[in-house]
Nucleic acid binder design. Structure first.
Lengths: 258, 258
DNA sequence: CGTGTACTGTGGTCAGACCACACCCGTCGC
DNA sequence: GCGACGGGTGTGGTCTGACCACAGTACACG
């Protein structure tokens, strides 16, 4: 019979996935207790725990010890953490080249700002089927204000920068893009910080970045998709080239032929 | 002291991530045996196994029992499987709306074919820094030939369709996009199949899809980025609208107010 | 009626045991 | 001398049982 050859924890994972797909489990629901799940599926508790651990890292469930309504494993479906862990580790393991991460981020963010600009059309929207009239960018603007503080360290500035770019993705309303952008961003966080330390003049660079941010937001507000897209492209390509001493689309330096 | 309050399996995960980042671990390397790892880090073997399970699902390692050089846990960094699992489960758990998945796929694939068309410029490339001259699309073309077989079932056709679209991403050479496209595609595989069964005329639709595929490839070959992009957009939007009875950018029908 | 304490069930962790497996190497037979 | 065969050894895979910390709950007590 099929299924017997699968590893025990895979059986658990598939069972839970089937419950999700069939609607027996929905966000907010409690999973059965680990011991009960083990008994139901005929596997050991440790196998159940391995499956639950995977689901937790992937952002599908949240676990809490103790008793009461908030205890146990609860379906949450928050993809951000899982995507970040996946991309961070793949970059660490050299499965994802940093340049590919940046290129992908560039594509997604350019599309996001172009759509935001399109949706920002003052009158007549994109039609009655338009996603959401006038996406909320007040949070993004507030982040830009916070970045004007003169005594920010590189790390603080970059943390706000991350939040700003992420807020644009959030404003687009696309859950997949939001989570992916969060993952891409966290994957290269270390590189962005390392690059900032090697810059000739941080004050000069950060001033330029601030100005570019304002320009992007202005282009969105003025409903100019192509301008917004172009500004994002030069913003990201510029920072990459400045911190890596080569343009984004160049071949990386040949690996040492040791 | 920090780190003590973290859960045991997180300690293992962080330890391995640190080894990857520092270069102590690289693709192809063996991880220490589970029992040794547990002893080194002062945790139980079950905690080590939970961490390794996560790494395995994320595509970071491959495990094999037995003895010899191929046994044990080996760093592999194959992001496709992990991305697929993550997106499939997030769609199942309603963290990712299907429409957002399709929209994201549309953005990425449009960018991919546009870049392929740009790189297909017959002479003078994109300069000495160009990614790779003339990306290899023979595999993509062969898949289209295979899709001409008249006796294909819906499932077989869609499987080839998945491979075709994935081959385009692969041809771009971008690891992140390739893995992401694989994940997006596997996440909506079930919906694509269910949609195919509800079509008025599968023969008619599949014939149209075949023609559109040829057109996309032709646009790439003729180095026309904008045409390739437009064809991809209408290809994906068309299939979505046909199988969901509404355009991709429309609001989904209001949920039942039960 | 309020308060505090024991109880119960949860996830978190560990230790130990057994299994199947695959390689390695020594022995045995030719 | 050489090949085949068999046990030895170490691996991941799994299960069992136990203990802990924790948080809510029920009940007895004042």
């Amino acid at each position: 019979m099929p299924g017997t050859d699968r590893r025990a924890w895979e059986v658990v994972l598939e069972s839970i996935e089937a419950d999700l797909l069939s609607g027996r489990l929905a966000p907010g629901d409690h999973l059965p207790a680990e011991r009960a799940l083990a008994a139901d599926l005929g596997v050991g508790r440790s196998s159940v725990r391995e499956a639950l651990r995977v689901l937790e890292v992937l952002g599908l469930i949240r676990t809490a010890a103790g008793s009461g309504p908030s205890a146990g494993a609860i379906v949450v479906a928050l993809p951000g953490g899982g995507m970040s862990a996946l991309m961070r580790l793949q970059v660490a393991a050299q499965g994802f080249p940093v340049a590919d991460v940046v290129k992908t981020r560039l594509i997604l963010e350019a599309a996001v700002v172009a759509e935001l600009a399109r949706a920002s059309e003052p009158a007549g929207d994109t039609g009655p089927a338009g996603a959401s009239a006038h996406p909320d960018l007040t949070g993004s603007a507030q982040l830009l204000d916070a970045m004007e503080a003169p005594d920010l360290t590189e790390a603080e500035f970059l943390a706000l920068d991350t939040q700003f770019h992420l807020s644009l993705a959030t404003a687009s309303g696309n859950q997949v893009i939001t989570a992916t952008m969060a993952g891409l961003r966290s994957a290269i966080e270390g590189y962005a910080q390392a690059g900032a330390l090697g810059l000739a003049s941080w004050a000069e660079t950060s001033a330029r970045l601030r100005g570019e941010h304002r320009g992007i937001l202005a282009a969105i507000d003025s409903a100019d998709p192509e301008l917004a897209r172009a500004l994002v492209v030069s913003h990201i390509e510029g920072y990459y080239a400045e911190t890596h001493d080569r343009p984004l689309h160049a071949r990386p330096p040949a690996p040492e032929p040791t």
